[in-house]
């Protein structure tokens, strides 16, 4: 066991765990952030995509020792916290766009898809559909055919040229 110091969604978090524990398990089990999903455990589906120092990574492929001192963003960190108890969270524009276009169906790929899309937008990505498709090519979705996900990301990218 070693103590690792992470920043998760802007807040410091210390975990005392084996260094080879997958960042995915640290998030889901040690930090109870179950928004990040496991779809395959081998970096194929992207359901566990989180941002590590701003870059999308598969949390199933990152041992926590490599995330030490890292800045981690998960789906739980996208929406602004509710202004008062019981009030709805203020959705990130990308989350709102998914709701409008129908980008989420079963929802299991959605957290990872949102993080890949967020990284694309944060890097200044535009509404070009091919570029968006490349940015989310590491995230498998079986429900949507991707069309409405691409539309959602393009909607946000187009709103902030």
């Amino acid at each position: 066991m070693t103590t690792y110091h992470l920043t998760v969604n802007g807040a410091p978090a210390e975990v005392d765990v084996p260094g080879m524990r997958r960042l995915l398990d640290v998030l889901r089990e040690d930090l109870a952030l179950t928004g990040t999903k496991e779809g395959c455990g081998e970096g194929e589906c992207g359901a566990c995509t989180v941002l590590l120092d701003g870059a999308p990574v598969d949390a199933c492929l990152v041992p926590v020792c490599q995330a030490d001192r890292g800045d981690i963003r998960t789906v739980e960190g996208l929406a602004a916290p509710a202004s008062s108890p019981g009030a709805p969270a203020a959705l990130d524009p990308l989350q709102a766009a998914f709701l409008v276009t129908g980008g989420a169906q079963c929802g299991i790929c959605t957290p990872g898809m949102l993080m890949a899309g967020r990284a694309y937008l944060d890097a200044g990505g535009g509404p070009d559909h091919d570029a968006i498709r490349e940015a989310i090519a590491g995230n498998l979705c079986r429900c949507t055919g991707y069309t409405k996900i691409v539309e959602a990301i393009a909607l946000v990218a187009g709103a902030h040229p």
């Binding site: 970096g43 992207g46 995509t49 590590l52 870059a55 999308p56 990574v57 598969d58 492929l61 990152v62 890949a116 990284a119 490349e134 940015a135 989310i136 090519a137 590491g138 995230n139």
Partner: peptide, 9 residues
């Protein structure tokens, strides 16, 4: 190789 996530690591 892979996609963004794999290429980043």
């Amino acid at each position: 190789i892979g996609a963004a996530q794999i290429q980043n690591r």
